[in-house]
């Protein structure tokens, strides 16, 4: 996969995998499926267990994308790992609250907070 095709950028910080989501609008279902495959591979293929998803760049998020995040949460939990989401813009945070997924997923204000939660 070329760099320009990637939907996440990966960084390792003190044993935690930080995946920055690169798309501003996570709305198109074909792209959402591809994003899901990249995220799931972190657990299924790479065996990573401490993962932070950085939402700094994300401006839109549909329910199909929420579905991928739920699946990612389940995969990480099943593998005995931890998943946190951080730096979520206000409008997106409202979507998590409306769907009450803030009760299921670990949402953190910023990267430092998320690293503490999963580290």
């Amino acid at each position: 996969m070329s760099k320009s095709d990637r939907r996440i950028d990966i960084e390792e910080i003190s044993g935690v995998t930080v995946a920055r989501l690169l798309e501003k609008k996570i709305l198109d279902e074909a792209n959402i499926d591809a994003l899901g495959q990249e995220l799931f591979a972190l657990v299924d293929k790479d065996g990573r267990k401490k993962i932070v998803l950085d939402f700094t760049l994300v401006e839109y998020l549909s329910s199909a994308a929420l579905g991928k995040l739920i699946t990612m949460h389940k995969k990480t939990s099943t593998a005995g790992g931890k998943l946190a989401l951080c730096s979520i813009q206000k409008d997106i945070l409202d979507v998590f609250k409306i769907t009450q997924l803030n009760k299921v997923l670990t949402l953190c204000n910023d990267l430092d907070d998320a690293l503490k939660k999963v580290g």
Binding site: S62, S63, I70, T71, T99, K103
Partner: peptide
């Protein structure tokens, strides 16, 4: 139902 991966679209449109 909260951990289902689908079924939130109607809720979001209503809200």
């Amino acid at each position: 139902f909260i951990e289902r991966s689908t079924g939130r679209g109607l809720l979001l449109m209503r809200v």
